[in-house]
Amino acid sequence: MNFPINSSPHVLPITSVPIIMRHVLYALIPSTIVYVWYFGFGIFINMLIASIAALISEAIMLRIRNRPIKPSLADGSAIVTAILIAFSIPPLAPWWLPVLGASSAIVLAKHLYGGIGANIFNPAMVGYAILLLSFPVQMTHWIPPQIENLGFQNIDLWSTVLYSVTGSLPSNLNLDAITQATPLDIVKGGLKNGISINELRSGPLFSQLGGYGWEWINIFTAFGGVYLLYKGIIRWHIPVSLLTSITIFAALFYLYDPNQNLSPSFHLLSGATVLGAFFIATDPVSAAATNQGRLIYGASIGALTYAIRTWGGYPDGLAFAVLLMNLMVPLIDRFTTPKIYGQQQ
């Protein structure tokens, strides 16, 4: 009898890249539901468009690079990138915005650097940064929470689709009338004009903890993050250090002058803080590899995010903080190499 020869270990791995990506997508479900509750179905349209664009650009790039197309398309990483981009663009957006975001993420950030596993930068954040730098107007046309009694004009699904496809709204709606800046935007602009935090936060977009609606999106995103932690898809180091460092900085400045600085809860529960902590900064390819390195990486992202939000030119700094720290990863990895067993150092 003849048996095949294989190399040890003779055991199947316990997980796989597609399984990880699938769990990441599951973990985004709660925040998506809350997102739809507050901001309407626009995010679904963006997700759909971005996913299609991401898959097509992935296939084209794989073809150009002479790589097998099927396994890489099936691993789901392109979809995760696309979904994260859909989260970061306004629900009311023309179709080419998610298309450009997703395709530039896949082409520029992923495949020009050598495909999955070789990208230095987080693809979703590169896509978002390119969109934000290129189309500042479209990227800040956010609609207010679609809840009755807030005094905003609501927008239905049909109008959203129409706007996405044609770039124009039904005649009874006016783009400038139905869109607002995000809470972080308003705070940034208001502080520049000498308005105090208290005055700013009395506006209708604000609630007790943060921006109206945003707080719940962030909290439900955190539930998804806890699911990922529970499933062992991510480790606690990056989210915990990121959130802790942003809280510490916010608390310090808030205690110093609560009228000029936002409260820690506002920083935690607005913008992309929680999404970034659990889903973006934890992207393994572009994050630090060792646990110690991840603590440094996460804490630095938190500090940079706070710095950019407070003193920088853009309302939310998480994307830029992640991209900047992506650059530092090789250095962090180098200085956090664990001591090898039995080797004196």
């Binding site: 796989s16 396994p71 691993d75 596993g117 393994p284 390819v285």
Partner: peptide, 10 residues
């Protein structure tokens, strides 16, 4: 065909 490139998951 079930082998992917390293994603540096650590």
């Amino acid at each position: 065909f079930e082998i992917w490139p390293c994603i540096r998951c650590g």
